[in-house]
């Protein structure tokens, strides 16, 4: 079953077509990779999916419902969550608070419930706390729960960002270059983690990455963007043999295959 469907999505800045009629379908439960060389329009496409930009043309569907004009805030309520390439945690708050904030859309108690400390307040706060602790334990961050988010190591900050997406039980999470700035062993750990998250939480994950190696080993389906166009899509082995992809990555003069 298709969860996310883009129908010839395009956006134009001035005369430049940053994304040009890109269509793709992501199946429920899939680990989908979107790759392309620098400047291929990946981030712009990502911003179209998260609602930061409005497309100049094309439509976007989520779970059968059109969401082309749904603002960013509401996409989270529909079950789409994202991470940021340059990590945007609430740096001055604790690890636990960062996780709790992400549960807010599942809470419904009012200002007066918190003033009166009603049973609804206690119940929902406990629910949020339990959920946060469960996830923090799963990701081995429970011992750091009272640390400031800014004090975490780089890899731990990435983990916390993923925890934040999971707090609201989303259907789809979008990861924006999660391996950016990581070394080999950190990247390997992250790959395991992403796989585990998908399997444990039965999620659909879309991953944007320019590091082909990470994507090849991880994703079941890969689409390749170049100059704003989708030039290929398929299983990792298919894509890595595609001459157009090789050309995009290595330039037209080389005809050797992409080593993975």
């Amino acid at each position: 079953m298709t969860l996310l469907k883009a129908e010839s999505l395009s956006i134009q800045f001035g005369g430049l077509k940053a994304v040009d009629k890109v269509s793709l379908e992501i199946e429920k439960g899939q680990l989908f990779g979107l790759i392309g060389p620098n400047g291929a329009g990946k981030t712009t496409f990502f911003n179209l999916l998260t609602g930061v930009y409005k497309p100049t043309e094309g439509k976007l569907f989520f779970d059968g419902q059109e969401i082309t004009n749904v603002p960013t805030v509401s996409r989270s309520h529909l079950g789409i969550r994202r991470t940021f390439q340059n990590i945007r945690l609430f740096k001055g708050l604790t690890v636990l608070e960062n996780a709790l904030i992400a549960f807010d859309q599942n809470m419904s108690y009012s200002l007066f419930d918190s003033f009166l400390k009603s049973s609804k307040f206690h119940l929902q706060e406990k629910e949020a706390y339990d959920k946060a602790l469960k996830l923090l334990t799963l990701f081995k961050l429970d011992l750091n729960k009272n640390d400031k988010a800014s004090d975490l190591s780089y890899g731990a900050q990435r983990k916390l960002e993923i925890i934040r997406t999971l707090m609201s039980d989303p259907q789809l999470i979008l990861l924006d270059e999660p391996a950016a700035g990581m070394n080999h062993s950190e990247t390997a750990q992250l790959m395991d983690l992403i796989k585990k998250v998908r399997d444990d939480f039965k999620l659909t994950i879309l991953l944007i990455e320019h590091d082909m190696k990470l994507v090849m080993g991880l994703c079941e389906q890969i689409a390749v963007l170049d100059h704003g166009n989708k030039i290929a899509q398929g299983r990792p082995d298919e894509v890595s043999r595609d001459p157009q992809v090789i050309e995009a990555y290595l330039g037209p003069d080389l005809d050797s295959g992409v080593t993975t």
């Binding site: 960013t72 805030v73 509401s74 996409r75 969550r81 940021f84 904030i101 992400a102 859309q105 609201s168």
Partner: peptide
């Protein structure tokens, strides 16, 4: 702390 992140969390 971060309005953009807050928006992304709904």
């Amino acid at each position: 702390e971060d309005e953009v992140a807050a928006l992304s969390l709904g």
